[in-house]
Design a protein around this nucleic acid. Structure first.
Lengths: 233, 233
DNA sequence: ACCTGAACACCGTTCAAGT
DNA sequence: ACCTGAACACCGTTCAAGT
């Protein structure tokens, strides 16, 4: 305290990359993606908008850093004892929650799949895939499929939170969509119409995990004819 | 011909929504998403930029219409005789190709999952899921999972085409990424490192379809203990 | 009905100038 | 080293004015 006061030329709350990123995340969460501007950030941080650019070269970089921060807050490594299936589900759900809480994360992750954050996700999922004893020539495919599915679901979830109809709560949005589905042309949309009630009642996380389970189950399918399987005695 | 010439006050190539959308798609494909501006469009169509707004109210609507046009050009209904598995793979691959050819489509579809185009995709996939005789309480889950995976893969593919490293051909990009993977810290990325060669050699469409197959296989898993299965005699 | 382009209120980014 | 804000080159959108 005394130190900062003594150095009177310095503001107590000096600008740091961390403070900038935190403020950016707050702004992204509360105001949305296209309300994050250097000028708005500068106002919130009580500085000039050019000053921010000294720490972060451009808006793209700012978004990347914010994404990394938001994701790594949720994604932790599995505790050693966990079964691979459960570890994958936990990881997936963590990512889903992060993208649900921060609607801009999904869009950003999908928009630049080669960025370090994606690589880290790939690594963590891949380790568990390997622990599942998936044959080595299928590990790449399996990990890719899981990551693709997770990011796809997160992207959709992100978009849902930004839906124009989502001003109210979630059930209102679902009811509104269900009403639309119920009124679809029975000739053109005979399948979707029958799903109206499922849409209204579904739980996002349950459906998400059910999809993960489908992929995990698919991984165990050997495609051998049954009589070649080792049956439990 | 004579008709249009006679009516001399009218330009031969009158502005229509269709011409606007076609020009927008060309611009999106060749110049990228953020090079599509009303001013650039107006220049290409040799008109004022305000004129376009008479046909399409804003840029969002223009993107939606362009997406619908690009997708419906590839997505056709399955021919009656096709087996459901094959129909799903064909649909999925068609969508993948569309998103590969038009890198902006993936981003747009994922960005607004409640739009009519997404509903139509859901319908077409759902019909085949039903034809697979998936039990009725799983049809919603199965269709959602497939659509989520397809869109996720398309989104990634879209991003890859826009990758800064993708200026050259695809193999150059893969080689560059493989080099990065090969140089990763063996302690932090011990799994990903082992996937370097798989990354370099993988085929996007094969991997994509392999993921579809995982989900389809998962759908057939009954979760009954083996001794309760009907074994072939 | 359809088209034009000036005008407005924003942006991201650069940069000379300050401390 | 760090901060400031004017300046520039763009945007999307609106709209009075034309044909």
């Amino acid at each position: 305290m005394a130190k900062t006061v003594k150095n009177s030329k310095r503001r107590m709350d000096a600008l740091t990359l961390e403070r900038i990123v935190d403020a950016a995340i707050e702004l992204l969460d509360s105001e949305g993606e296209n309300r994050l501007t250097f000028r708005a950030l500068a106002a919130r941080l009580e500085t000039g908008h050019g000053a921010i650019q000294w720490y972060v070269p451009n808006k793209n970089e700012l978004l990347k850093t914010a994404t990394k921060t938001a994701v790594s807050a949720v994604v932790t490594q599995a505790s050693p004892g966990t079964a691979p299936h459960d570890a994958i589900r936990a990881l997936a759900l963590g990512l889903f929650n992060a993208m649900d809480a921060h609607p801009w994360v999904g869009r950003e992750l999908i928009g630049s799949p080669w960025q370090p954050t994606m690589l880290w996700i790939f690594e963590l999922i891949g380790r568990q895939v390997k622990a599942l004893r998936v044959s080595s020539d299928k590990q790449f495919t399996a990990t890719s499929a899981l990551v693709t599915y997770i990011i796809g679901a997160g992207g959709r979830e992100s978009a849902n939170s930004r839906a124009p109809e989502a001003s109210g709560n979630r059930q209102e949005l679902l009811d509104a969509m269900a009403t639309v589905w119920g009124h679809l042309d029975p000739n053109e949309y005979w399948f979707t119409r029958t799903m109206t009630e499922q849409l209204r009642r579904h739980d996002d996380r349950e459906e998400f995990l059910a999809g993960i389970n489908l992929i995990l189950d698919g991984l165990e399918t050997t495609h051998l004819p049954l009589h070649e399987l080792e049956l439990p005695t």
